[in-house]
């Protein structure tokens, strides 16, 4: 392990703010991408399912 304590790990020498902001931004953006992908998937399924059921009822 490259660090002796949790504080040392969070401080990253003097670079904590840079390392953690870079990782924070990257994580949030990638999580958004996955969320957007799965939301589109769910929306597509629901829209089509509703449309087919409506046509069937007619």
């Amino acid at each position: 392990m490259a660090f002796n304590s949790l504080t040392e790990f969070l401080m990253m020498g003097t670079h904590g703010v840079y390392v953690w902001s870079a990782y924070g931004f990257s994580t949030l953006t990638l999580v958004w991408l996955v969320w957007n992908t799965l939301a589109t998937r769910r929306k597509t399924r629901d829209t089509l399912r509703k449309r087919f059921l409506r046509n069937q009822a007619r």
């Binding site: 990253m12 020498g13 003097t14 670079h15 904590g16 840079y18 390392v19 870079a22 990782y23």
Partner: peptide, 9 residues
């Protein structure tokens, strides 16, 4: 120093 760790992302 530690700023190089940004390389992993």
């Amino acid at each position: 120093g530690n700023s190089f760790r940004i390389i992993y992302i």
